[in-house]
Design a protein around this nucleic acid. Structure first.
Length: 449
RNA sequence: GGAGGUGUGGCUGAGUGGUUGAAGGCACUUGUCUUGAAAACAAGAGACCGUUUACGCGGUCCGUGAGUUCGAAUCUCACCGCCUCCGCCA
């Protein structure tokens, strides 16, 4: 089922609806172009026409076969029966031939379909890389230091709370030992965020302050598997380049790069009733990333690691509510950063820089004084019905119509980078780090020194 | 790791080669009855693809995939999941 090389073979129903592509050729073409994909929509549609032609011929043959079989079943006369059976043998041969032809075209068709990215929303800016991203909001006062602020790895090493050197000997580069108060800080962050996500009163006020007319229910905390089947990753539209993932071919498994990968797949092949939605999850897991092709970039400290822990939100909602859901998730992200008093900017990610399954992506970059710039700490992906169509996660509307649910995922807190932001923003002249007010109660001290 | 068992529609559960997308029950929807509800009775209800203005028609789906056969839920093989026992580990 899974090819050892390349992308696992997936034979389920697929991605962008082919009907939608047929009927909205120009929209899809423009969207694909905006996303900087080189997939040829005209070629796909031509292939699709061929596919439908062969399909209808196969179905006619199959229909004849079914009718004949039924006749054979009720035929009492032995000779007549034998006669019919030998006739059927001929039909069978032709049928097999057509079916093989169809199979070949289906494989080609599917390969193309899998390569079509989600179409960017209208408000998504044009652009090829992160320079095209638009800052839509900024918050917070950048701290002023009467000294030259240090980077997190200098602070961490001096305080004995980050050890990448031993980790490199034991594991390899891009791993680390987090120690002492930094570990307490991690669990304090997680605890604080889970308290936010399960406090319905607070969630309601976050929604209200963001101008959203919704009464959100609590997020359900989840600890998901960190291993996932490659085929499921294909359905999540997260199996793009095999090099990005840790693969375990002996077990036909791979490590997740985010809790999103196993949270989003929780309801494969499920039809929700309209009244069951929305469903909101908060998943805590370790994320694993090979960081292939990033050698030389961010090599110091814990900014870009092969392994880091992360709390992630995943929401399944009705299609008409998914835009609002994304705004809600971003509002939660901003609430967390405001609570921690960390300056940030909110970016509308441009078409060329956004994820393959996204139709709208919002990133948050948090101020890192040691680097004297904003770095990405949060991401929010609105994938619409793109992933759910592949996963076959649907909703039965009140009028009986069935359609893909919409899916949103977003970071609550990515541990490594958030720790960096705290360390660098809260550092003091002597190299110690003040504990943010809201975290003091979890750690039981005011300063890490 | 060894031995055995098992996988049918939202749930339960019949069905071991021939008009079986699949009996029965539960749940669901709509009627009748009722002041209303319950109960009873009657009828209806799967998903996907193609085709059709529509009614409809055709095809696919009984864990997944491949095979045998004129014909597969039913037979064969592989894989996946679940259960029980033994071993091992926590």
């Amino acid at each position: 089922m899974v090819a050892r090389e390349g992308v696992p073979l997936y034979t389920g129903s697929i991605m962008l609806d082919i009907k939608f592509i047929r009927e909205n050729k120009d929209i899809v073409k423009a969207g694909v172009k905006k996303k900087k994909s080189d997939i040829d929509i005209d070629a796909l549609l031509a292939l699709d026409e061929k596919r439908l032609g062969i399909m209808s011929r196969t179905e006619i043959l199959r229909s004849e076969q079914n009718k004949m079989s039924a006749s054979i079943a009720v035929e009492k006369d032995f000779n007549a029966r034998q006669q019919m059976i030998s006739e059927m043998k001929l039909v069978k041969d032709e049928f097999k031939e057509k079916e093989e032809e169809l199979e070949k075209i289906m494989a080609e068709w599917q390969t193309m379909m899998l390569k079509i990215p989600n179409i960017p929303s209208v408000d998504t800016p044009e652009g090829t890389d992160e320079t095209g991203n638009q800052v839509i909001r900024e918050w917070g006062e950048k701290p002023e230091f009467p000294f030259v602020p240090k980077e997190h790895f200098e602070l961490g090493k001096a305080l004995g709370i980050i050890d990448t050197e031993t980790a490199a000997d034991v594991a390899s580069s891009r791993f680390s030992y987090l120690k002492g108060d930094l570990v307490l800080l991690q669990f304090a962050l997680i605890q604080m965020c889970l308290e936010i996500l399960t406090n319905e009163e607070l969630l309601a006020s976050i929604a209200r302050d963001a101008g959203l007319s919704m009464v959100p229910s609590s997020f359900v905390p989840v600890i998901p598997p960190v291993f996932v089947r490659p085929l499921v990753q294909v359905k999540m539209a997260r199996y793009l380049t095999p090099d990005d993932h840790y693969l375990f071919p002996n077990d036909d498994l791979m490590l997740i790069g985010s809790a999103e990968h196993t949270l989003g797949a929780m309801h494969m092949n499920k039809i929700f009733e309209e009244s069951e939605l929305p469903i909101r999850y908060a998943g805590y897991s370790t994320a694993f990333r090979r960081e292939a092709g990033t050698s030389g970039r961010d090599t110091n400290g814990i900014l870009r690691q092969h392994q880091f822990d992360k709390l992630e939100m995943e929401v399944f909602s009705l299609p008409e509510n998914s835009a609002q859901e994304q705004n809600f998730l971003v509002a939660i992200q901003e609430y967390v950063l405001k609570t921690l008093q960390l300056p940030y900017q909110v970016l509308l990610v441009c078409a060329g820089d956004m994820g393959f399954p996204d139709n709208r992506q919002i990133d948050i970059n948090t101020w890192m004084p040691g680097q004297n710039r904003y770095r990405e700490t949060h991401s929010s992906d609105s994938t619409g019905g793109f992933q759910s169509r592949r996963l076959n996660t649907r909703v039965r509307r009140k009028d009986g119509k069935i359609e893909p649910v919409h899916m949103n995922d977003a970071t609550v807190v990515a541990i490594g980078r958030t720790l960096i932001a705290i360390m660098e923003n809260y550092q003091q002249a002597d190299g110690s780090i003040k504990v943010p007010d809201v975290l003091k109660k979890y750690i039981g001290k005011d300063v890490i020194s």
